[in-house]
Design a binder for these strands. Structure first.
Lengths: 207, 207
DNA sequence: GTCTATAAGAAGATAGAC
DNA sequence: GTCTATCTTCTTATAGAC
């Protein structure tokens, strides 16, 4: 039964490197260490493997966002977390989100695959937007709402604040997906960005 | 001889909709109104058609950026253009850049194609980064340098300013590539973003 | 420059032995 | 569950007539 997952994993690696259509079932089988026809005992078609990857990601994604949303719907806990927002903690949040997206094995491979397949059907398009635009933006927007409510940040349109905070992170993330050797440069710019962001929006500057 | 360009154009349309590997030469030929073998009188291979698209784009891109850089290296002209920077003109610049990227036929199809092919080789990766990250960022950075020098904007790290200005535009652009029906929503958010950007960085606020 | 005919190979998938 | 052998279809590309 472990083979079923090993197929999924090998397929995701190959799809993320070369794209779905460029990868043959023989290649996937080879990576797993079996012959192509054996795959069909685990998945009924190549597309079925792809769908398996989507399902697996959905499970992981829901687990992960559920953990984050729990914070969002638990203001008492948030108070403890965010009452001591410093420039450093904002930078840590940004860098943390960035490095998680960039280096988490499954997340990273999945994003590259989805990047290549996003125009192939409407479902994949909305999935991409949800995971890399709508959800992060509404998550950040929630956080800035709380920080504004606590009086820590200037009150502003939190949607625009979220866009200001997250969009540079997104741009640099997609840049590093293409050119991993530029990660240090990206991290430096990201840090400068968040410092500037903090300078702009934070009420009391104690630096 | 017109057929050679019609092949390029049809191929770009198909590649931008379905990706290079999903499109067959028969499909391209069909779109042009000829049979597949006739293509080989104009291009020696399928890959050669793809390379033709790249060359064509390079010509267009260099023409376009040369026109922009001319401003950059002509401070006298710039003074005339930028001495009267208002919130509206900044919004116009942002919206203008956005709608050009989003609606110019060749630019739009090329970007979608490149999005799907960016991981297939290192050259395409750097080309993507150049066109949609490095070049726009350095262009914006130049503009903000001048605006700071003119005393119109607060002096700041212009690289970070460029990132603040452009990254939201980029995120919303890629979003609209996937979900064109959200263009109005994106334009609204883009306008709010630039208003906020202006509020933050402009020295004298006369509103 | 366009066509028909066809080569030559790769792809996804099935049958059936072990 | 894995294998070999095979089927079918699609793909890029060429040959050669018009």
């Amino acid at each position: 039964m472990n083979t079923k997952f090993r197929i999924l994993d090998a397929a995701l690696t190959l799809f993320s490197e070369k794209g779905y259509h460029t990868v043959s079932v023989a290649e996937i089988a080879d990576a797993v260490g079996i012959k192509a026809p054996s795959l069909y005992k685990h998945y009924k078609s190549k597309r079925d493997i792809f769908n398996g990857i989507l399902s697996e990601m959905q499970v992981r994604y829901e687990k992960q966002t559920a953990a984050l949303q729990m914070n969002g719907s638990n203001p008492t806990a948030d108070a403890g977390i965010f009452s001591s927002v410093t420039e450093d903690s904002l930078i840590q949040m940004g860098i943390g989100l960035f490095t998680y997206f960039l280096h988490d094995d499954y997340v990273c491979r999945f994003r590259k695959m989805l990047t290549m397949e996003q125009f192939h059907d409407a479902e994949l398009a909305t999935l991409y937007t949800k995971q890399y635009a709508d959800d992060p933006l509404s998550y950040q927007s929630q956080i800035f709402s709380m920080l504004s409510a606590c009086g820590l940040f200037r009150t502003a349109y939190t949607d625009v604040m979220a866009l200001h905070f997250y969009a540079p992170l997104y741009l640099l993330l997609t840049l590093c997906d293409r050119e991993p050797e530029r990660e240090q440069e990206a991290l430096l710019l990201l840090e400068q960005h968040i410092k500037q962001f903090n300078l702009i929006y934070k009420k009391e500057n104690t630096q």
